[in-house]
Design a protein around this nucleic acid. Structure first.
Lengths: 233, 233
DNA sequence: GAAGATCCTTACGAAATCCTGATGCCAGCC
DNA sequence: GGCTGGCATCAGGATTTCGTAAGGATCTTC
C-alpha cells in the first residue's frame, strides 16, 4: 500500500542542515532530492512531484510561507516545515498557509521520521485524488504550478484577479461555484455582495479565453447561482 | 464544504486542563464533549463519532497509546495527543501508534487551534475523494455535487427554483413531502401558503424531466398531502 | 513624477427567471 | 346535472439577474 521508496524534496539553504538530513534520510528508505532556494524548490516540486516536502522557512530568495501557498495552489502533498523560529505566531502562520506539520530546530531525527511516517500515512489514505498540476479542456491549458495560461498553445496574459478567478474555477472544475464562494476566494470576505465584480471580470476572462466570447463554451454561467468551468465527461 | 461546528472529544483527567481547553474551544466554533477516563473516552468515541479527538497520554485507567490503537482499529478520525512527556521516544511511540499530532504541555492555544485546523483539513480532503452523491431513477440522473440534471444522458437546464424543488424531493426520495415542507424549503417560511407556486413549478419540472408530462412516472402527486419522488424498490 | 497596467464603478440593453391570473380538467358529492 | 375543491396548464408582464462598454481611480514600474 505504502510507496516503496518515497521521494523526499528538501528545500533548505544551509549546507550543514542538508548534510545532516541527507545522513538521516538517504539510507535506502527514502530517495532524497534537494533544492537550496525557493525558486528551485517550486520548480522541483512541480517537475518531480515528490511524495513529501521538507522546507526551511528562512530561504535566501523568498519567504517559505509564500512558497507553501504557491505549492498549495495545485498540490496537496504533505509539507513539513523545519524552522529555527519557535514563536507560536510563526507556527500558526505556516500551518494556516498550508503546511501539515512544523518542527522547531533543533529536533530529533526520530521525531522527524515519525512525523514523516504520519504524513505519508495521510497521503496514502487520501491517495484517491492524484491531481495533475495542469488543467486541460478544449483549447485551454492552465499550468497551475507556473501560473501560465495557454489558448491553442499561445500563452495568454491574465491580470492577478483574472488568474485567481480562473484558478478557483479550475479548482472546482465541472462543479458550479456560487457567486458567494467566488467572491470570497478572489476578492475576500468583505466583498461578498459585489456580484457585479464577477460579471465584469467574467466578461474579461471570456474575451481572453473563449473563441466566441458571446457564446461561451468553457466559462458557463448558471443563472442565479454562479459559474462553472466545463469539463468534458 | 467544511463541517459547520466540528465535534471535539477531549479525553483528559485533570480538571484544570479541561477547564482551560473548554475556555479555548467551546466558544461556538467547536462543540466540545469530555471524557475523564480511557474507558469513557473509547465509549464516547464510538457512540458520538467525533470529528477530532484530543487525548492526554497519562490517564488514570490506562495508557493513551493503547487507547489510540484501540480507536484506530475502526476509526481514522484525527487524534491529537496532548502530553506532559516531552521525550522523543514518547512522541515517536504515540505517532506510530496512530496519533496524527503530538503537543507537549505547556502549549499555546493558538498552536493547538492551528493544528486542529490542519487535522480537520485533512479529514475533509480525505472525504472529498469519495464518490459523488447521485440520484438515479429510470431516465433521470441528478448529480448533486455538480448541480447537474440529466434525462437519458442529456443534460437538462433547471432554473434555481426548479432545482431547489427537485433537490428537496431527492433529499426525501421515496417519501411524501408535504406542501408546507416544500414551500418552506424552496420559497421560504413567508410563502408557506402559496400552494399555487408548487403546482406551477411542478408542471415545469415534469415538462423538463418526464417522458409524458401528463402521466408522471417520477414526480408523483399525493392528493391533499404533497408530492413524492418515486424510487424503484 | 510620468506612463502603463490594473482595478473599481457606473449605466443600460438583453436575457433569464419569477410571479400572477385565467382557464380547463377531473373526481366526489349533493 | 350542477356544484365544489384540488390540481394542471398556459401565457404574458413584472422583476431580477447578466453582459458589456467606457471612464475614472488607484497602483506599479521605471
Amino acid at each position: 500500500m505504502a510507496v516503496p521508496q518515497p521521494l523526499v524534496l528538501l528545500i533548505e539553504d544551509e549546507p550543514q542542515m542538508r548534510r545532516f538530513l541527507r545522513a538521516a534520510l538517504d539510507d535506502g528508505q527514502y530517495h532524497l532530492i534537494e533544492a537550496p532556494t525557493a525558486r528551485e524548490g517550486l520548480a522541483q516540486a512541480a517537475s518531480r512531484n515528490p511524495d513529501i516536502i521538507l522546507m526551511d522557512l528562512g530561504l535566501p530568495d523568498g519567504d517559505g510561507l509564500d512558497l507553501t501557498r504557491r505549492i498549495r495552489e495545485w498540490s496537496n502533498r504533505p509539507i513539513i516545515v523545519l524552522s529555527a523560529r519557535g514563536m507560536e505566531v510563526d507556527k500558526v502562520a505556516a500551518l494556516d498557509a498550508g503546511a501539515d506539520d512544523y518542527l522547531t530546530k533543533p529536533f530529533g531525527v526520530g521525531e522527524l521520521l515519525a512525523r514523516m511516517r504520519v504524513a505519508l500515512r495521510h497521503a496514502t489514505l487520501a491517495a484517491s485524488g492524484k491531481e495533475e498540476p495542469e488543467f486541460l479542456e478544449g483549447d485551454l491549458r492552465v499550468d497551475l504550478a507556473r501560473r501560465q495560461v495557454f489558448v491553442r498553445s499561445q500563452e495568454v496574459h491574465l491580470t492577478p484577479l483574472e488568474y485567481r478567478l480562473l484558478q478557483t474555477l479550475v479548482h472546482h472544475a465541472g462543479k458550479v461555484v456560487t457567486h458567494r464562494h467566488l467572491l470570497k476566494e478572489v476578492w475576500g470576505i468583505n466583498s461578498i455582495a459585489q456580484t457585479h465584480y464577477l460579471r465584469v471580470y467574467m466578461t474579461q476572462l471570456r474575451h481572453k479565453l473563449e473563441v466566441d466570447p458571446t457564446h461561451p463554451r468553457l466559462l458557463l454561467t448558471e443563472p442565479g447561482v454562479g459559474y462553472r468551468l466545463k469539463v468534458s465527461s
